[in-house]
Write a protein that binds this DNA or RNA. Structure first.
Length: 841
RNA sequence: GCGCUCGUGCUGAAAUUGGUAAACAGACUGGACUUAAAAUCCAGCGGGAUUCGUCCCUUGUCGGUUCAAGUCCGACCGAGCGCACCA
């Protein structure tokens, strides 16, 4: 007696595939089209979670599909293995980050292999390996030479207790996540990449990314944040040659200006405007001034002793410092036009400032906002009066230019990318500071700059900086003493080019050869979570441009098509004390949920699986109990990829039952794998069934290519249901039909399909080409025509193809059921060939 | 506040892109098999009427375009996500 022993089957074929090296990727294959499929590589945190299983199965289905369809497929895997968790683990467990990371990679690699992914492991990469990061250091040096990498002073989150810099997400309510200390803003000299030089290019090229989700492009557009407007220079009264430059998108409202406001962080606060009264005010109102930006925060203002001079009418305008003016945006200073800007209006009300309308205002409103599409006429605006807003805007800018009191200006929200991290477990920045003050790149021969293995993680602060010897070096040209840069690179730097490395992973001379890039790039299909919509994807796009500007030759856009998959969710459970409970501890009984001890469990809404809420299902347990094929098929069958997937115990069980049922059926009937060319000439019955199978192939292909994996699974179910319910099919034909089925479902269940196809088939199913269909052949003789009355369906009739309206009506008139239509008065007939006929009565 | 996406049975969902709404599954109900349970198999499963042939209604709400709307347009309600004092 056979039974579906998934464990034994999956192990057997995984070994077989490795032995036969079926996933080997050949670099040059001129006869085949290339297809580069990539899922965002994992951080080796310790264990694979369900989100990974979904992500990598999605890519695996596509990779198997395209390979079977005769593409040369690259589907690699690697590790985003630098980053803070390793360092935190080192701190807590007294292990070396390197060892901790290696151990995690080993575990997770084995887990991934158990999922049955079609991956060429010979191409595996790891960003924390010197083989990888030495090329990255080379890139950094090229960027440095080209001025793309530069150093500047910048504010960081400083934890004074742990003596370290914290990332924004490590600052919780203004306090350090580990020390709990009040976080300070500290000025440090840090490395930046000039992404802002590429703002316009990164923005305008979004429109060419046709296969990216609109949502992601929209988010990037907002992030880049382009604003067209003007800068205006305001002279400070009684201060010779001191100007305040403001940025505005509404220069035409200049005659409505009633005050000037500067950020409390504006450089002039430290300079011209500085006095004891201001220092005292800042000290007393520190919290109010620096509350995080929110719309409903109280407007705080400080009136300085100075006035600015309106450049067109010479009016004196009070200069304020205001908390709603942000130093990070524009010039850190504005002119206030209270009649048409809510913030300025609130401020003017509080400080009793003039509110002057400059747009046509028949209703005599004190305040109203104006949109660009309204384009109203200006009033109270001197020579701009009676002009439309759009025209006035152009005119005023040219007047600014003529009189040298301002100029046209476009600004972007996108800031330069700070890549310095005062951390150990990252790629060392290959720079030395010579004792004479020169900042120099490390010479090629000395690359890679390796991390020391003997760092101490028990001290507070950056282990590289505190290392007794590591940072001391000499300049090999002059022999002068020098100190190494002790900052390491942001891990987004590592992940901004890993997809290039996959094209040529074993190249030790350069990060990649031009030929390999030509061969594989761009990535045809990239799959990952929406959480990387901005940073990772934008940095990668920038990185390609930066490489191109240096001496490399890569495509500007790395990812041709992007699929953002949804999260894997599960219900949450709590006990009566509000503590989270794991699903494995919950017992379901008559739609009620209990703990083992009989206490009732409170069910919460379904949320993304997370450790903190304990609503996790462990992939290992699932694969042990049901097998990888079941897990893979379930992940693909319940929801479309972009949407969240609700984990369901019943769902996974039913998939297992389904596979088991087919397995037992085929074994019982001594199924033999059959290909179409082995099939005898067909009878009528043959024809109809073969046609059915070929139609399945066509619609299945269509679903896969459009990522409608759940529909593809439904069609397989439909087909197998049909085969089960039809007992009279001749054996050889039935074998053929089941063989088609196995070859299609193969992309979801490779082990299962391999096991069942193996008798009578010498090739691995991985090497078989995809089943074919013949477009002419699957065409139906009869088509289904819908008969409507007043747009409502009344009947469906099978008719010959391409009948015209009169022929259809003729047929209906001799139909005993339908001819009564013609006893009514027909006002109008709508006829769409091969689809529908609609009688309007 | 601004923007984007989405609202279809008890649940996950499908609908060749304007032309048969609810495919395929899950849960549930009933039946067969069994001493019993599990497993398996069969049937039912949006609402209402029914002479058991069928007929009528139904895609968040209201309106519009159209011979025809789940699909297009407008307003509203609700959910999720993103941005948010961006000058």
């Amino acid at each position: 007696m056979h039974f579906y022993n998934h464990k034994q089957i999956e192990q057997k074929w995984q070994n077989f595939w490795v032995e036969k090296d079926v996933y080997n990727v050949s670099q040059s294959s001129s006869s085949k089209k290339k297809y580069y499929i990539l899922e965002m590589f994992p951080y080796p945190s310790g264990k694979i979670h369900m989100g990974h299983v979904r992500n990598y199965t999605l890519g695996d289905v596509l990779s198997r599909y395209f390979k079977s369809n005769n593409y040369n497929v690259l589907h690699p895997m690697g590790w985003d293995s630098f980053g803070m968790p390793a360092e935190n683990a080192a701190f807590e467990n007294k292990t070396n980050p390197k060892e901790w990371t290696k151990k995690n990679i080993r575990t997770m690699r084995n887990q991934l292999k158990k999922i049955g992914l079609a991956i060429d492991w010979k191409r595996e990469i790891s960003t924390s390996s010197p083989d990888y990061y030495k090329h990255q250091q080379q890139f950094f040096i090229e960027f440095f030479k080209k001025g793309i990498a530069y150093k500047k002073d910048s504010f960081v989150n400083w934890d004074p207790v742990d003596n370290t810099v914290l990332a924004n997400e490590q600052v919780v309510e203004g306090k350090g996540w580990r020390s709990g200390a009040e976080i300070e803003k500290k000025k440090l000299s840090q490395w930046f990449l000039k992404i802002s030089d590429f703002s316009e290019d990164l923005l305008s090229n979004l429109t060419n990314l046709n296969d990216w989700p609109e949502k992601v492009k929209f988010m990037q557009k907002n992030w880049i944040g382009k604003s067209d407007g003007a800068e205006i220079f305001f002279k400070i009264h009684d201060k010779d040659n001191t100007f305040i430059t403001v940025f505005t998108t509404r220069p035409e409202t200049i005659f409505g200006a009633s005050f000037i406001a500067l950020s409390f962080d504006h450089p002039l606060c430290e300079d011209v405007l500085s006095n004891d009264r201001l220092k005292k005010f800042k000290k007393e109102n520190k919290e109010k001034i620096y509350t995080t930006a929110k719309t409903d925060v109280e407007k705080i203002g400080f009136k300085t002793d100075y006035m600015a001079i309106h450049p067109l009418n010479g009016k004196k305008l009070p200069i304020f410092l205001a908390n709603f003016v942000l130093m990070e945006y524009g010039t850190g200073s504005i002119f206030g036009c209270p009649a048409h800007d809510k913030r300025d209006y609130d401020f003017a009300k509080k400080f009793n400032l003039e509110i002057k309308t400059v747009f046509s205002n028949p209703e005599k409103k004190e305040f109203f906002e104006v949109n660009d599409d309204e384009d109203p006429v200006l009033i109270n605006s001197n020579f701009l009066n009676n002009k439309r807003m759009s025209k006035a805007r152009k005119e005023i800018i040219s007047i600014f230019n003529e009189r040298n009191i301002g100029k046209k200006k476009t600004i972007f929200k996108l800031r330069d990318w700070g890549v310095s991290r005062q951390r150990y477990w990252g790629c060392p920045i290959p720079i030395i500071y010579r004792e004479d003050g020169a900042i120099l790149p490390v010479s090629d021969k000395e690359l890679p700059v390796m991390l020391p293995d003997d760092a101490n993680f028990e001290q507070k602060g950056n282990p590289l900086d505190l290392h007794p010897t590591w940072k001391y070096t000499t300049c090999n040209e002059t022999g002068m003493k020098a100190i190494r840069e002790t900052d390491t690179l942001d891990t987004f730097f590592d992940s901004s080019w890993y997809f290039l490395r996959f094209c040529d992973p074993l190249n030790s001379k350069t990060g990649f050869s031009n030929k390999s890039i030509e061969n594989w790039m761009p990535v045809d299909q990239y799959i990952g979570g929406i959480e990387h919509a901005i940073l990772h994807l934008l940095y990668s796009r920038f990185f390609m441009r930066a490489l191109n500007k240096s001496k490399y030759d890569v495509p500007n856009e790395p990812f041709k098509s992007l699929l953002t998959q949804g999260m894997v969710c599960h219900e949450t459970y709590k006990d009566k004390d509000n503590g989270w409970i794991e699903p494995s501890e919950v017992i379901k009984k008559n739609n009620k949920f209990f703990l083992l001890n009989g206490d009732e469990v409170i069910r919460g809404r379904s949320e993304k699986m997370s450790k903190s809420k304990k609503n996790i299902i462990d992939p290992d347990t699932i694969i042990e109990e049901f097998g990888a094929d079941t897990a893979r098929l379930f992940m693909m069958s319940d929801s479309p990829p972009e949407r969240d997937l609700e984990w369901s115990d019943e769902g996974i069980r039913s998939v297992w039952k389904y596979l088991n049922k087919i397995f037992l059926h085929l074994k019982k009937n001594q199924f033999e794998f059959t290909k179409e060319d082995e099939l005898d000439a067909q009878t009528e019955e043959h024809l109809a069934l073969v046609k059915k199978a070929q139609k399945l192939i066509k619609s299945f292909n269509n679903d896969i290519e459009n990522f409608k994996f759940n529909s593809a699974v439904a069609k397989l179910r439909e087909f197998s249901n049909f085969l089960f319910s039809n007992e009279k099919i001749e054996t050889r034909l039935e074998n053929y039909l089941w063989s088609i089925f196995l070859r299609l479902i193969y992309v979801f269940t490779p082990h299962f399909s391999e096991e069942l196809s193996k008798n009578n088939n010498n090739k691995s199913i991985c090497d078989l080409s995809w089943p074919k269909y013949n477009e002419k052949y699957i065409k139906e003789d009869l088509i289904k025509l819908v008969i409507q009355i007043n747009g409502k369906k009344k009947a469906i009739v099978d008719v010959e193809e391409n009948l015209n309206e009169n022929e259809v009506i003729k047929l209906l008139k001799i139909d005993n059921n339908l001819n009564k239509i013609f006893s009514f008065k027909i006002k109008k007939t709508i006829f769409i060939k091969n689809k529908i006929i609609n009688f309007v009565l």
